[in-house]
């Protein structure tokens, strides 16, 4: 595939979110937006920057057996939807956890991991995964 899934500029502009979970928050709706938004659904533009907590709960998950080629060395792997704060949910791999221990409602914490490795010479792309607590 000649298309680059990760390019340096695209990767770098999301570092505050991928590295540090920077979100924003609408006090009117008590809702976190991750990634940050310019406007809340309620119309509020006065959103305050907040860092999301680094622990959360698995809402649903799957075990991927046929991933995109960037992830083929890691197959099979678990990935799920994790709620970190009101409204703030992420899709993240569930690392280092035996598949039969994963369940809906499981508590997990964020870890900094390498997410994608672009070829032999491309940029290394880091971000968040979760692990069981």
């Amino acid at each position: 595939m000649s298309f680059e899934s990760v390019t340096p500029a695209r990767y770098a502009r999301f570092m505050p979110q991928r590295y540090r979970l920077e979100a924003n928050y609408c006090a009117k709706c008590d809702l976190h937006h991750f990634p940050p938004r310019q406007i809340c659904k309620c119309g509020n533009k006065e959103l305050e920057t907040r860092t999301l907590p680094d622990e959360g709960e698995v809402l649903t998950y799957t075990i991927i057996h046929t991933p995109g080629s960037q992830f083929s060395d890691e197959r099979p792997f678990a990935i799920g939807i994790i709620e970190l704060a009101t409204g703030a949910r992420i899709t993240a791999q569930i690392a280092d956890t035996p598949f039969d221990e994963i369940e809906i409602g499981m508590r997990v914490k964020i870890e900094f991991r390498r997410i994608q490795t672009v070829g032999e010479a491309g940029v290394l792309a880091y971000g968040y995964k979760v692990v069981s607590m």
Binding site: D73, E74, Q93, A95, D96, E111, F112, R113, R114, I115, L124, Y126, K129
Partner: peptide, 16 residues
């Protein structure tokens, strides 16, 4: 290390 771990990721976790 896992395939997703390297000197940088371990350093970040230790630093946190």
């Amino acid at each position: 290390p896992g395939i997703d771990q390297d000197t940088v990721t371990l350093s970040v976790e230790a630093s946190k």
